[in-house]
Design a protein around this nucleic acid. Structure first.
Lengths: 148, 148
DNA sequence: CTTAGTGCAAAACCTTTGCAACTCT
DNA sequence: AGAGTTGCAAAGGTTTTGCACTAAG
């Protein structure tokens, strides 16, 4: 949160109650991947008068400042998570094709691959994203664990 | 294309001119990742009277049939590519953050990782997707190849 | 013939934008 | 005071849906 203040100040942006509330929502729900509508719901339920447009604008801003990280899980809206800047810890996501649940997976074994790809392609690679799709334990049961 | 006919027949779906045209568009442009609007443009320019809704419905259907593969490159629309069923060849994508260009990268070194993740998470993993983000050769030049 | 598929227009989403009022610094 | 920020409402873009009509099997 102090980090937010610093980053805003650095670029002459203002520290408003709305921005604080939005970041707080992510701090309070750091296990989830919130979308704009989620944040809106959370803040409204705390009797905040915030507007949805402000949330969209703030999420975009916080992504630019690298405080949040924008992600897409294919459910029709952009989702965000806090960007843990301390360590360049890459975690990836398992997405259940049945219920949509998203589970995180720690570990980054892709550095060597990334270096190879960078060399072959002449891209300067700055990030990567790995997603696994499958069926979570509960949905395997529900589906009778059949192979399709 | 014969494969399409077989898969449609199997599920009592009909082989319509529209469905043929849409698949043909992908066959004719197999280097690109077309979105609904792209397909619409291509077919309209070939004086087809097809409707956009039909394209959306067909893209969804062909994804279900695993003839196409739905992807998201974060540009606001879903893009599709032909699903090469012959070999389970996994290719991945390099996305230029500057110009949006998408380059493909062959190779699948993720099997062992996938198996590890599956075991730890109790997910039954059926697919994965890896994206690298960076700057392509041209955009590196334009940006003066600076490190940000 | 029967059922599925089509085209159109309208609706449903998510997201962005214009603008007057407002508020951090 | 002044630049940035907000909330609202309207507009934008993509995707979905209802429905009468058409066409594949």
């Amino acid at each position: 949160m102090a980090e937010l203040q610093a980053k805003l100040h650095e670029r002459r942006y203002k520290l408003t109650p709305q921005r604080i509330q939005i970041l707080q929502a992510f701090l309070d729900n750091h296990t989830q991947h919130l979308c704009a509508e989620d944040v809106y719901g959370i803040l409204r339920s705390k009797s905040s008068e915030i507007g949805l447009a402000t949330i969209y604008r703030t999420l975009e801003l916080l992504s630019e400042l690298e405080v949040l990280h924008k992600m897409d899980f294919g459910d029709g809206c952009s989702r965000y998570e806090i960007n843990e800047t301390s360590v360049p810890h890459h975690h990836h996501h398992l997405i259940c094709l049945e219920c949509g649940k998203v589970k995180e997976f720690e570990g980054d074994l892709l550095e060597t691959l990334e270096a190879m790809v960078a060399e072959k392609s002449n891209f300067r690679i700055v990030d990567h994203q790995l997603k696994f799709y499958g069926y979570c334990q509960e949905c395997q049961k529900d589906r009778g664990d059949r192979s399709e």
